[in-house]
Amino acid sequence: MKLKAAKKNQAVIPTASMADIAMLLIIFFLVTFQIEVDKSKVALPKTGIQVEIPKKSAYVSITEPGYIRVSSGEEISVQVPSADEVFSFASGLVARAPDKAFVLKADRNVPYRIVDEVIDALKRANVRNVFLLSDEEPRAAGG
């Protein structure tokens, strides 16, 4: 009787689905990818109320020493010398898009005087929608 030689099983890692998984991950990153227009480091205030900020909102950031930076939401922010510049910047944007949303990204330790000047400039420029960028405050259990 002729004995059949045992078949040798080769150890193979199945990689056929790797490209599919990679593509899914790419699609995820493409959908969630957002260019951070303002990279200034600020310690944001914490709030219990948190609403989603519309995409492509204009940014006005105030860092702790009081430096003000502005961005239309489509390009990287640039520093401006004073709040008066915020007025001319915001007026130009509002003239093109009256409902343009503005995000105020200010350090919680910055003197209110500077924030007041910026808010006043936005008011004078007829800006309606302003969002105060904040971190989420953990709520106490049970309310």
């Binding site: 790419i26 990153f29 990818f33 951070e36 109320i49 609403v51 989603e52 900020i53 929608n129 904040s134």
Partner: peptide, 21 residues
């Protein structure tokens, strides 16, 4: 491509308090 997106994307804060003027 995944490595590129992972390096360039940041976990930016996109939430805040609405403050209508």
């Amino acid at each position: 491509l995944i490595v590129f997106f992972m390096i360039t994307s940041t976990f930016a804060a996109t939430r805040g308090l609405d403050f209508s003027l």
